[in-house]
Amino acid sequence: MPQITVNGRVVEAKQGETILSALDREGIRVPTLCHVKGLEPRGACRVCLVEVEGFRGLVPSCSYPVSDGMKIHTHSERALEARRTIVELLLADHPDDCLYCQKSYDCELRSLAESLGIHQRRFRNTSEPHKLDLSNSFIVRDEAKCILCGRCVAVCNSVVVNEVLNFGNRGAKAKIICDTDVPMGLSTCVMCGACVQACPVGALTEKKAMTKGRSNETRVVRTTCPYCGVGCQLNVQLNGEDLVRVTGVENAEPNRGSLCVKGRFGYDFPYAKDRLTTPLIRENGELRPASWDEALDLVASKLKQIIAESGPKAIGGVSCARSTNEDNYSMQKLFRAVLKSPNLDHCART
């Protein structure tokens, strides 16, 4: 097992792992804008440069393997200066509209600039005006804000394996394209939103979140997706009781951050205007509002009457495979322990 020294502290590393992975395990934060945990390092953004004693140049920690006896300085003046310059160059090509940007409060570029003590521009701003692609039903692309870190390409191809995004062109004209460079809404994109979750800046954002308020005001509640039986873990971001956005919980079983279009964007239904808000009783063919007492008394008396006349087996019930275990348990308990009817089922088969 290689031993390395990080900022004067001795750290056990694993054979063959990268410097970044060893640092990560030790809780030593080195920023990176392009790396996606668990995937091959790309070494594209170079923000993760660290100083290694005896090495002439700085070393990209995301891709460089550890070796025994390495002495690493993650926050030496040289490393910081290099990071600063890289970020300042990125900012030179980035629109200054943080005030209006959805990512504003969770923008990794902005937070990195701040942590590096960058308070004003060093290079003239050469960024293009917005280049919005609004063609996708749920995702907004703004090419002007793209820093070409390639995280979206990585997750689209290697995590969700939907193979839509790619690098188009080279050099100064480099950009991210959908399929053969068609608008995102016309591409084969299945709107899983993995690229949005991975994007460190405001180049990929959510349409539905556009009018939901800033995310520093939000709280996060972890829950389970209400759709299929995979059971993906979601972080629901809320502004008061309004749902701002849903993201996949990173490192959680089973989905490890990934979601599909339903889990990520299918969340409005509890807020629908036509929710049932009061018990209803049919009278002269029409359903009319009623109080809980009135409705429950009616159900109870009707069931009692039927049980008295025809026995409990004249009652049938269907429980709900969309609802919680606790609710399903309660319904079967009602049927068995209270009504004494064995006729309870649910759509286990569809």
């Binding site: 039986g229 495979a321 399903n328 089922d345």
Partner: peptide
């Protein structure tokens, strides 16, 4: 078997079956 609905497994586990 991949279960279709979010809690079809749970509804079975809970005995919502005849």
């Amino acid at each position: 078997p991949l279960r279709g609905q979010n809690n079809v497994q749970g509804a079975c586990d809970m005995g919502a079956l005849p």
